[in-house]
Amino acid sequence: MVETTEISGMVSNIQRSSMHDGPGIRSTVFLKGCNMNCQWCHNPETISFSEELLFYPDKCIHCGLCEQGCFSGAKVPCGRRMTATEVLEEVLLDAAYYQNGGGITVSGGEPCCQPRFTKEILYLARLAGVHTAIESNLNVSVDVLSEVLTEADLLMCDCKIFDEEKHRKYTGVSNRQILQNLEWLSTLKIPVIIRTPVIAAVNDTPDDILPIAKLAANLPNLLYYELLPYHALGLSKGTVNSEKIKFDAPSRETLYALAESALQQVKEVYIASKKYKKTAEK
């Protein structure tokens, strides 16, 4: 495997102590580059495949020495090429904390846009005894997906909008491939979590959620279905190349109503990492 350790890819960030990207304590590797362009994306800096400078004008101290390096936080480079081994070195700093279900999550961007790199990271992590998870938008071919997932212990994937036209409008792409893949996931031998980001006035009605929950319910390997309420974090990120629109977050009541709907199909529903209990059980 000597030569394969040199496989490299674009990484935007490695977040340690990640509490929301899978079970236990995890290190989440955010790869750079995505094949979708969701208007509400909370990680817009991971959309472009290239290195870029994030710009936060409020932090500029007007020293006039930008070329010699910016230290004020006004211009922050985003994206660095790393080898899979380098990624692992950083991930293994927290190896001792990965007991009880923790591990590595490769996220993005879309990790399957860098399939060899993603697979290699997961392979090396497994070799080191670390639980592996991947977050995907499923907008890739079954071949690519199945290849990458050979090294994953858990898949967390999104199905954002069921209606194709609406999906195209808000994400820039059709959802046909995603829905096909969603059915194909039943053949996998690993657990799957299906998630839907809920954005007010975009996909916050039971009619939006029910068909997705129905597809999720067909998966024998489904751990649970999760609703992720929209937040505006992405707007605070100083990306140069993408204009983001401010949406509204769904109300708590809306989320509960959606969860109740979804529970008609699936056994377990989560809202933002918290297990939703039926009204009668509360």
């Binding site: 102590s17 509490m19 929301h20 079970p23 236990g24 304590i25 001792a96 904390y97 007991q99 009880n100 279900g101 923790g102 989560y270 933002a272 990492s273 918290k274 297990k275």
Partner: peptide, 22 residues
């Protein structure tokens, strides 16, 4: 909010135990 999340308490416990182990 950590405690309300699934596995939140366990995560904190893991940090405590590992720090102590180290």
């Amino acid at each position: 909010k950590v405690s309300a999340e699934q596995g939140g308490i366990e995560r904190v416990e893991q940090i405590l135990r590992t720090h102590v182990d180290k």
